[in-house]
């Protein structure tokens, strides 16, 4: 029993945020040093969606001004740096979760709301986030973090708009969280 208690890790114990930040900064520098670009997370779903639309409705995809940018190129939109990088995010996240004892199939939600409500708003949030990210040419990763790394004006503007927007709307959705 005693031994088990020692072995069991506290799943709420996270890495020091400043250490995590410095390491994340090194990952960004490495991405720019090797590939000349930073990581992103909204470009992957965008390209995969374009590929799905092409498979389901090829004429529609090829004629669309939006999907056309991805499906009319020399390579499949699936064969892209961002997709391989996102695959890595899944692997890296899984390794960290496994080491920390956080692998657990569950819906995390405030006790004041039901799982179903949490899942509904998670879906809506995903739709909105990707919609905004596609509009702004990147999300918190690709536009804000990678943009700020190279001191792009667009990176700072997008970052301020994301966090500013979130603070503006936070009050109306407080019951989902607190």
């Amino acid at each position: 029993m005693e031994q088990e208690r020692i072995r069991t890790k506290d799943p709420n114990k996270y890495m020091n945020p400043y250490l995590a930040g410095v390491l994340l900064g090194f990952v960004l520098i490495a991405a720019f040093y090797f590939s000349g670009r930073g990581p992103g997370a909204s470009g992957g779903p965008k390209r995969v969606t374009a590929a799905i639309v092409e498979a389901v409705a090829p004429t529609h995809a090829h004629q669309s001004e939006f999907y056309g940018k991805y499906v009319n190129g020399p390579h499949s939109p699936l064969k892209d740096w961002l997709n391989f990088e996102l695959l890595g995010v899944l692997v890296g996240g899984f390794i960290s979760g496994a080491l920390a004892g956080r692998l657990n199939l569950k819906v995390e939600h405030s006790p004041k709301i039901t799982s179903r409500k949490r899942l509904f708003w998670a879906l809506i949030g995903g739709i909105l986030f990707e919609y905004g990210a596609t509009m702004a040419r990147g999300c918190t990763s690709g536009a804000a973090l990678s943009g700020i790394a190279v001191l792009a004006t667009g990176g700072f503007v997008t970052m301020l708009a994301i966090f500013g927007g979130a603070y503006l709307f936070a009050y109306f959705f407080r019951k989902l969280w607190i």
Binding site: P39, G40, A41, S42, G44, P45, L86, V89, L90, G92, G93, W121, A122, L123, I124, G125, G126, I127, L128, F129, E130, Y131, G132, A133, T134, M135, A136, R137, C139, T140, S141, V157, T158, M159, L160, A161, I162, F163, G164, G165, A166, Y167, L168, F169, A170, F172, F173, L176, W177
Partner: peptide, 22 residues
């Protein structure tokens, strides 16, 4: 505009794309 929509997505969905995948 895209950033503000992302902000709305953040407080409703609770994630951003990168953290959602992780």
């Amino acid at each position: 505009a895209g950033g503000m929509i992302m902000g709305l997505g953040f407080v409703t969905g609770g994630f951003c794309p990168g953290t959602g995948f992780a």
